[in-house]
């Protein structure tokens, strides 16, 4: 019955169950967790109200700042790595030949793999003794380049970010291909007549048309990088000596390894605040462009 579908009350009613579940399992826990963030609580026994002490401790903890820095490295690597590579691949694989379809599936494959599997595979690639990467370097005569990739604190965050980018390119590729296929062929023809080919066509015709999509992928990159957790837990566990700690692993280790539930809750609240801040920044920047 279209009439009742159009009525607002029916829409509200239909959304209610989903909304309720979302409220109970997503929204309320955020406030709940923010509330725990004001306590010194081990998860067991009595909780002691300590006001903003947890936040004070967090801001004084160098590990928190390192975790934040590592998260920002991930955000940056995603934006300068995933987006351009996915766009380039989309441009190359646009045509629907069987070979292109095969390549597209290959690029998408890591997305289908469990992140634990991805972590284990790359753990072996980076293995200091029997790792593929070091062996390839040795074969190429680049012995001085071999190292313990996940161990050396100068480079391990970058070593960790490569598999994360590798595993996440797939969806962006699909999004870009969809956006490119939506450009009508008349625009291409017109560009050709006007002499816009190659790079010129890409920068003056194609990119401006799909700019909205690019912005969306950047937003997805930011959110994806801030929630990064599983690959790192499998590959390094945030170590060695917390050198690859992310905000999420920092929160997890505090809450579930050393039983500082109150502090862990404060950290998770902080993650929300930081995300909100980045979302806000992103909103301002994209609005100006528009």
């Amino acid at each position: 019955m279209p009439a009742s579908l159009r009525s607002k009350s029916f829409v509200v009613l239909a959304l209610l169950p989903a909304l309720l579940i979302f409220l109970v399992f997503a929204i309320i826990p955020i406030f709940w967790s923010a509330y725990y963030g004001f306590f010194d609580w081990k998860g067991l026994g009595a909780a002691k109200f300590i006001g903003l002490n947890n936040y004070e401790m967090m801001l004084q903890d160098p590990i928190f700042w390192r975790a934040l820095k590592n998260n920002l490295i991930l955000v940056a690597s995603a934006i300068i790595g995933q987006v351009p590579i996915a766009l380039l691949l989309a441009l190359l694989l646009l045509k629907n030949s069987w070979f292109n379809r095969l390549l597209r599936s290959a690029v998408f494959l890591p997305m289908v793999l469990s992140t634990v599997v991805v972590g284990l595979i790359w753990g072996y690639i980076y293995h200091p003794q029997i790792g593929l990467l070091n062996q390839v370097l040795e074969v190429l005569g680049l012995d001085s380049w071999t190292r313990a990739w996940l161990d050396d604190p100068k480079i391990n965050m970058f070593a960790v970010s490569i598999p994360i980018n590798w595993a996440n390119i797939g969806p962006y590729l699909i999004i870009f291909i969809a956006a490119l296929q939506n450009i009508s062929s008349e625009i291409g023809d017109a560009a050709k007549i006007d002499g816009a080919i190659g790079w010129r066509k890409l920068f003056y015709v194609t990119l401006p048309i799909i700019w909205g999509t690019v912005v969306v992928t950047i937003v997805l990159c930011i959110s994806g990088s801030l929630k990064a957790f599983d690959h790192v837990i499998v590959m390094t566990g945030g170590g060695p000596a917390q050198s690859t700690e992310l905000l999420a692993t920092y929160m997890y280790n505090n809450s579930f390894t050393i039983y500082r539930y109150g502090y862990g809750s404060a950290v998770s609240t902080m993650i929300i605040l930081i995300s909100a801040l980045l979302i806000g920044l992103n909103y301002i920047i994209t609005k100006r462009r528009g």
Partner: peptide, 12 residues
């Protein structure tokens, strides 16, 4: 926002 809050809440 939804995605993020989901992740955070799943953990907590």
């Amino acid at each position: 926002k939804k995605r993020l809050s989901l992740i955070v809440s799943v953990t907590t």
